[in-house]
Design a protein around this nucleic acid. Structure first.
Lengths: 259, 259
DNA sequence: CGCCAGGTTGACACTTTTCAAGCCGCGTGG
DNA sequence: CCACGCGGCTTGAAAAGTGTCAACCTGGCG
């Protein structure tokens, strides 16, 4: 209903520049309830009859070129982002310039929640391939989630899951050895790709060895060596960025049995 | 206003057992607007005239003995908790039993947000000294924050800050060396104690070397050695759990200059 | 008063890093 | 279309940092 009203408005104004711009925005605008990422993204759990209201939430998509930042640490926060397509890394940096990749984000995942607490972003989000995001103005999300309990509930879940995810990475960095870390990383990637309809057994890594290493708290040479060892042990095949998992159970054993 | 109504109700029922229990609850009940932790805790940022409504939120305090768990991984989630007094550690555990302390919580800090995402707690919260918490039923928090924008906003900030805090720990575990980790830990502790009116320069560690090590991704022997080295370098005095920081700038230099 | 958890210190082992050399493959420009 | 260059990857050898194991100390509690 709201959508129809919006369309009428743009038709009324169709003669002006402002209107042309508005039409362009309309074209860009993605109805969440038509989006194939619906079940993975912010609208998951929002009642179908309330989905229309979400169209007020997502105004614009934005394309980010490989290597460019969606946002950087220190920038003012005003929106969170849903990844439409592509791949991002998030990273934090020490005063003296060393950095740590804190996560990789793929389609349907939400970025930018680090900015809410202090109205400034705390980390960089960098596209590691050409990507597209939906921009969700935070003030609007606040308003809307006060009205839609299911949206509020799901947004809380998304933030909480980010905390849980980071707990997992802490475990990785705090107690696991190099082989366990890489096994955990590959299994996690496999599971998430699988949830998006890709093969869980073979995929292209979008990130470099250095980025994997930064995420896992290892140097790129160590990552490379562990890949080679996994290959030698018949657990996987690896050729540059292409990976084929040959023995998922073997990988799982490494990751959970402490060698 | 709501508080007065509640009191009247208890008086009406004062003859029954049920009522006696209710009176006990009333006595336990802490009005957030009388709590000296107000500015650090969930009510921070909630408008004064709305503080009364928070009394509906916090029903009960609960005492937790040193060594006991406030909640454990896998338990059903239904409340978050505000630390009234005492000290907690949070920890996650691998399948094969190794564990990682993910944080220490002191008065005014919020625990349990890991449970929202999957309706189960993801980690253990264990008191490391006799402690007391305010129980905040999550369903009530949801309802109330839909009505009080300032509460919603502040709760989001608290969750976001937890994400930011964990980003910091990731940096610690991912790129820092033992001395930097311990320096960062001590400076963080000093700052938080200072915010609570304690001396930033001398304090008692509530946790063992092993717990510090688990948090920092180090073995207890390494923690002990680094303490000894800091002492030898004139940065601090340490005697068992008592610590006196002698050279804050020196500690900061270690933590930020990568020596 | 004695026991025991918690802490310190030393010697040695092991994992991961560092430094170095060389290879591969992709994209650009001639 | 091919040659070239460079980022990204692999591998080796040596070094560094932290872990492991063990002995001993200390202080608080029963």
């Amino acid at each position: 209903m709201k959508q129809i009203n919006a369309r009428q408005t743009t038709i009324q104004l169709a003669q002006t520049d402002e209107a042309r711009e508005k039409i362009a925005l309309q074209a860009l605008k993605v109805a969440c309830h038509n989006c194939n990422l619906r079940e993975l993204c912010l609208p998951a759990g929002v009642a179908a009859e309330e989905l229309d209201a979400l169209d007020d939430l997502v105004y614009t998509r934005r394309k980010i070129k490989r290597g460019d930042a969606l946002y950087r640490a220190g920038e003012d926060f005003d929106s969170i982002y849903a990844v439409r397509s592509g791949f991002f890394k998030s990273r934090v940096t020490t005063e003296d310039g060393r950095d740590q990749v804190t996560g990789f984000s793929m389609a349907g995942e939400i970025l930018g929640m680090d900015g809410i607490g202090h109205d400034k972003h705390n980390c960089d989000a960098v596209a590691i391939e050409d990507s597209e995001v939906c921009t969700i103005p935070y003030s609007r999300l606040e308003d809307l989630s006060a009205q839609l309990p299911s949206l509020q509930r799901h947004f809380h879940k998304i933030m909480s899951r980010e905390i849980v995810r980071e707990n997992g990475v802490l475990l990785l960095l705090g107690v696991m050895r190099a082989e366990e870390r890489l096994a955990a990383f590959l299994l996690n990637l496999s599971q998430r790709l699988s949830a998006r309809g890709y093969s869980p057994l073979e995929f292209h890594l979008r990130m470099t060895r250095e980025e994997i290493g930064s995420y896992l708290g290892l140097k790129l040479e160590t990552v490379s060596r562990v890949f080679s060892k996994f290959h030698a042990d018949g657990l996987l095949e690896v050729e540059q960025k292409y990976v084929r998992l040959r023995d998922i159970k073997g990988l799982r054993a490494i990751y959970s049995h402490h060698s």
